[in-house]
Each structure stands twice: as structure tokens, then as C-alpha cells.
């Protein structure tokens, strides 16, 4: 298993990406609507997890409230659409920006603190958002029942109605997100995140504005969750506060950690394990929480950097291990 994964990881990234894209594009030819809907759902989680990868994987921050930003994206676009008749395509940028701004407001006051505080604050924020939605804040969230009759996304007169259309829509966003995330990783900002993760004090002393770059990670990750929420709401057309529950945040977090923190292929592997398998196999669904717990324990023992780790995170962990064994 270990050898096999090592060999797979040596295949150039671009080949993987192109092969995966080709398969993804051809899926609608062979899969039925149910399976496409599963993949569509997986695509939503991939977007959520890619956002969280920026926060957890690149900047090394804890974020256990990603689902709150997902819900914020979905509710923003839904409220604009239902009460003000704003088309989804115009509500989408508003929802993304709002999720990003809230991500900034939540994280900014506490970014100079250690990681654990951030985890607690984001959990609390997630619960606040969910409770506000349940309690029908301002009378516009529909309480526990949520909102319904949300329009589909339409652009230039074309409406994304069917599952195939929505599948391609999500695929489109997944592809451009991966493209963007990889460009971010390989940039001044991406390096700054790595410096912060490696040694925050040294990064700061070398002139990296650590609070600023951490805030950017948070904003981008939250905004991506907002996008995922928009895509969800516009296809399902019914949303409820359940979107923002803590368990969702945990699932997204597990996707990132199980797959391999900071690794894009890892996000797909994690989503497959956390979302696709439970959906396809009832046994897995019924036992998911237990299986995830077991998988986590096994992973921490045998593959602490995740199933498909980023090269760098794997190095960091093995360095820690060496230190621990020599200490």
C-alpha cells in the first residue's frame, strides 16, 4: 500500500489532472442521474474542502466552522432571490463576498492567538449562525423549515435545470478553483503561508505580515464555502439550517485531514471516503461516524500525513517524528 501510493504520487501532477478531468467530463455519458447527483454533491464538498485546505493546509489554521460559511452563502443567495427577486447569478458574487467578509470579521480579532482558540471560536461561530437561522432572524430565514422555491442559476437565458447541467456547472467551478488554488500555492502569498506554518515568529521577524496573510487565507477559504452554498441552493432550491450544523463542518474537516492536509488530490480522496461511499453504500452510511473514527485512528498510526499527503506536510510530520525520537 505504501509503495503503491508512493509510486502513484510520482506520476506528474498534470497527467493526473488531465486524466481526471477527461473522466469527469465523460461521466454523464455512462452514469445515471442518481450517480450524477452523488457526484454533484461530492463536487460541492470538494469546493468546501478546497476552501478549508487553504485555511488548514496552507496557512496551518484551525477552522471547524466551514459549514457556517456554506450556510451563509446559501441563505444569502436564497434571501436575495426570494424576497428581492435578485437572480442567482447576481446574488452569487454578493454571497461569496459576504461569506469572505464574515470570515474576516470572525478570524481577524483572534488571528494572533494560538490555533486552538481559533478552533473554538469557529465552532462557536458555526453554532451562532445555525441558531440564528433556526430562530428565523429578522423573520427572513424561515426558521427550522428553511427557505424553498429558490431559482436555478441562469445565465444569458440558459438555465441550469437538469442534474447533468448542474453537474457540469459544479465541475466548472471545481476546475477553476483548483487552478486558482494551485496558483496561490505557488506565489508570494503561498510561500508566506508556508513560512507562517513552519515558524510564525521567524516569518514575522523576516518581514512577513503574518496576521494579514492568515486573514487572507481565512477570507478565501470562507468565500469558497460561500460559493459552494450558492451552487447548492440554486440546484436543490430548498435549504434549511441543517446546512450549517457542526457535523457538516466536521465532515469537511475530515475530508481535508484524511485525504492529506494541503493536498488537492487528497481532497478528492477524502470526499470519496466521506461523502461518496456513505451515499452509495447503506452500510457505510449507517456506520459512517464509527468508520470515520476508526479511519482517523488508523491514519494517525500508519499514515499521519493523510492518504495522499502534500510532499511538504509529509516532510514536516516526519521531521517532527525524528525530533521526537531523538529528544
Amino acid at each position: 500500500m505504501h509503495d503503491l501510493m508512493a509510486r502513484i504520487q510520482r506520476i506528474p501532477y498534470l497527467y493526473w489532472a488531465l486524466a481526471a478531468l477527461a473522466v469527469a467530463l465523460l461521466c454523464p455519458l455512462v452514469l445515471d442521474n442518481y450517480l450524477l447527483a452523488v457526484l454533484w454533491q461530492a463536487g460541492i464538498y470538494v469546493l468546501l474542502a478546497l476552501g478549508l485546505t487553504i485555511i488548514v493546509g496552507y496557512a496551518g489554521l484551525f477552522q471547524l466552522g466551514q459549514a457556517a460559511f456554506y450556510a451563509i452563502g446559501a441563505y444569502t443567495v436564497a434571501i436575495l432571490n426570494i424576497y428581492l427577486d435578485v437572480p442567482i447569478i447576481l446574488g452569487m458574487p454578493v454571497a461569496i463576498v459576504l461569506a469572505g467578509v464574515l470570515g474576516y470579521l470572525v478570524s481577524r480579532p483572534i488571528l494572533h492567538l494560538r490555533g486552538d482558540y481559533l478552533a473554538i471560536v469557529t465552532i462557536a461561530f458555526g453554532e451562532i449562525v445555525r441558531m440564528l437561522l433556526v430562530n428565523n432572524v429578522f423573520g427572513i430565514t424561515g426558521g427550522a423549515n428553511g427557505l424553498s422555491d429558490i431559482d436555478n442559476l441562469s445565465i444569458f437565458g440558459f438555465t441550469f435545470n437538469t442534474i447533468i447541467e448542474n453537474y457540469y456547472l459544479v465541475l466548472f467551478f471545481v476546475v477553476i478553483t483548483i487552478f486558482g488554488v494551485r496558483r496561490l500555492e505557488d506565489s508570494r502569498l503561498g510561500r508566506a503561508w508556508t513560512y507562517v506554518r513552519e515558524d510564525e515568529l521567524a516569518a514575522e521577524a523576516m518581514g512577513v505580515n503574518t496576521v494579514h496573510v492568515k486573514a487572507i487565507a481565512f477570507v478565501l477559504g470562507s468565500a469558497l464555502a460561500g460559493l459552494a452554498g450558492v451552487l447548492y441552493a440554486s440546484r436543490i432550491s430548498v435549504i434549511s439550517p441543517e446546512l450549517g450544523r457542526f457535523l457538516e463542518s466536521v465532515i469537511i474537516f475530515c475530508i481535508v485531514v484524511l485525504g492529506g492536509t494541503g493536498s488537492i488530490p487528497g481532497v478528492f480522496l477524502g470526499t470519496f471516503g466521506m461523502v461518496v461511499l456513505p451515499e452509495l453504500f447503506r452500510v457505510v452510511r449507517d456506520w459512517r461516524d464509527g468508520l470515520v473514527g476508526l479511519a482517523m485512528v488508523l491514519m494517525m498510526i500508519f499514515r499521519p500525513a493523510g492518504l495522499w499527503p502534500s510532499r511538504r506536510v509529509a516532510e514536516e510530520l516526519s521531521a517532527d517524528e525524528q525530533e521526537a525520537s531523538t529528544a
Binding site: 516569518a203 523576516m206 512577513v208 514536516e316
Partner: peptide
Amino acid sequence: RLFPNLTVLENVMSGRDCRSKAGVAGA
């Protein structure tokens, strides 16, 4: 206090951060 898991070149590049401007859009 180097960045232990980064290459020597990447370590030294960190010093240039405060002399650089590119942000999200640039990346």
C-alpha cells in the same frame, strides 16, 4: 529559526516578502 522543511533558496526568498507587492489578484 530557519524554516526547516523548506529549501535553502525558499528560506532566503522569505526575506524578499516585505519588499514585494503581489497579492491574491497577482497570484
